[in-house]
Design a protein around this nucleic acid. Structure first.
Lengths: 236, 236
DNA sequence: CGGAGTATGTGCGGAAGCGTACACAGGGAT
DNA sequence: ATCCCTGTGTACGCTTCCGCACATACTCCG
């Protein structure tokens, strides 16, 4: 069973700080596809994933979508609560089933206002989120589906204990904002190259280094920046 | 001559608050192409544009680039100073010459820590930046050069007093991360449609409504969200 | 007023990705 | 064991955008 400290942000708090807020932390289990929050809906809680991975998606009027950022045990879902906006025009969807701890909006707001470690952490994490979004924008403009799939796989396994992802190519295509067939083709190439193996709904990363070399620079840039901003928090 | 209150964030402060920090505000003039900060370089000041417009760009190893966000009189350049990260992997370039007020990093940090209006404003503005970046990511994935040019023109004139932009198609192509020829073609269509007129280095918006209807939803989404987050600050 | 340098117009061939259609196969449910 | 649903493989024509090449035209500067 996961403990709050399995979330790397919570793990950074001192024992005293964690005890203080512990009573407000509620463990939740999240299934693949669960919508943690809907675009424009006011958030009641922030979520600190432990084993779950959550994708921040933007869904266009046409129904097309694209992943904006990915949040796992290194982060928190719902920054708009302490940033002051209460809502965002994005949807948050569970991309990999697992656990999280959630905390009522008012509690995190109070903690944040106190201005201590928690505020510091939340702000730095939010900056890493800015970096991730910026890089996603550039990547969407300039890099191929093949490269982006590598980046996406790396981001995902960095947030899991085993290099194995339970998801379909269809779902991945929604995240990347490309056709399902595009993912099939790209995944086929990676499998042929021995970098991954997969079967219906399961992808296993066999050769992490190969993925890194086939990926665009975006993966490393975000990873390094996250490590810089949150040295005790970065995934892996 | 511009006053600090020409920046909409500064204008939101009370007379007393503004007087307090007034001594630290230094007016600066910025030329087209000036680099306000370089990727990874530590920022010495935050910049509050009044008449200038600054683009946040990411420059890839290949030299290709893409605009991540655009900051004018409604915002502030250098959020990483108060977010705690000190640097970002982006470059900030003056996209339209004009004035700004700058403030030493330590001063804004102290103001921010105080936790009053200034902190509140900076956080909400940062959230609006998150929205802008997220939308840029989606737009880069799903929308055509034509649509993106409309969006870009609208964002620009919203931050200017007159619907006229002094820039070249080459520079616009760097912002959008597309070929210069692509911009030429798109601009040609818009001119033929009577929405804009241009000559070497100058673009005039003739029919704002036409641009809005030719633009993708991204423009309105960001605009509305900015107005929601910063009702007394939004451009226009 | 004329030339240089820069900005814009245009026209290719090619690559990447899209939309569509359909065949096939894995594996859970009965 | 079989059926059926859902996930994956493959093919085709089409659109958009890219990379390149080069022609033209504006405007600033001497």
């Amino acid at each position: 069973m996961a403990s709050p400290r399995d979330n790397h942000l919570l793990a950074t708090l001192s024992a005293a700080e964690l005890t203080n807020i512990g009573q407000y932390l509620e463990p939740v289990e999240m299934e693949l596809g669960d919508v943690v929050y809907e675009s424009g809906r006011e958030l009641s809680h922030v979520y600190f994933p432990t084993t779950a991975i959550v994708s921040l998606l933007y869904v266009l009027e046409s129904g097309a979508s694209a992943e904006i950022a990915i949040v796992g045990r290194e982060g928190v879902v719902g920054v708009s609560i302490f940033m002051g906006g209460a809502t965002t025009p994005n949807r948050a969807v569970v991309q990999s089933a697992g656990g999280a701890y959630r905390m009522p909006a008012r509690v995190i707001q109070d903690e944040f206002r106190r201005g201590g470690t928690m505020q510091h952490l939340m702000l730095r994490y939010t900056q890493s989120l800015l970096t991730q979004m910026a890089q996603t924008a550039v990547c969407n403009r300039h890099h191929s589906v093949d490269q982006q799939l590598c980046r996406w796989l790396l981001f995902s396994i960095d947030r899991l204990d085993v290099p194995e992802i339970a998801t379909t190519q269809e779902l991945i295509s929604n995240m990347l904002g490309v056709r399902r067939e595009g993912v099939t083709e790209a995944a086929g190439k990676l499998q042929k190259a021995g970098a991954i193996s997969y079967r219906r709904g399961h992808i296993k990363v066999l050769d992490r280094a190969a993925l890194e070399s086939l990926s665009c620079e975006c993966y490393q840039v975000v990873r390094r920046e996250t490590e810089r901003l949150l040295p005790f928090v970065a995934p892996h």
